[in-house]
Amino acid sequence: MLKITGLTKSYGHKRALNGVELKVKKAETVVIMGPSGCGKSTLIRCINRLTEPDGGSICLGDEEITTLSFPRLLKIRQKIGFVFQHFNLIERLSTLDNVAFALRLHGTKPEEANWRAEVALSQVGLRHKLTDKPRELSGGEQQRVGIARALALGPEIMLWDEPTASLDPILVGEVIDVMEELVCEGKTTMVIVTHELFFARRAADRIVFMDRGKVVEEGPPEQVLETPVSEIGKKYHSLLRR
């Protein structure tokens, strides 16, 4: 489904991605972990070119993302759901409108868009918050709205950029629950950047460790977390043991 080859990205003289190689199969859940600044968020934003890579190749299905024209890219992005760390909701719109936003703007009729938005919100357990504005929601609720917004478009692949990093521990759970539900459904390919080790162990099909812009180790959770070979893997392993 997703194939990343030799991906590079620099910010000035700082090398964020140093030839990343990654493959993600369809319906696979891949969790990317690593220390701060290792290039995880950069990698995931490069996938839908929210960040423009400097070099390398990103193939989503048959589409070479890195060389797509802008209009075509926009079309591809509709197939890629993105959940942001800071929710990124539209403050002026209600919960329902936030979720129906993209549908309406892509030409879906209002009624259908609203219906689909309601379905998505139901999926995340927020059907009762349709008219609330984002500032009226808790962090966890906002993030769930964000998830619903991404799901509403029916994406082929979901990209999660540290979805629980901005939440307090109490609210993390409700988001994790939604994520696990989605993983369990097994319909959507997911690439998740997170520090949630236990979630990763439970939900991931494959864990990828990154360090200094490179993939240093990847494999099934039981492999990389129990018998890591990389330094990062060993650190995570020691965390689990605590």
Partner: peptide, 8 residues
Amino acid sequence: LAGLSLGL
């Protein structure tokens, strides 16, 4: 970013 990510 949200708008960009939604393909707008």
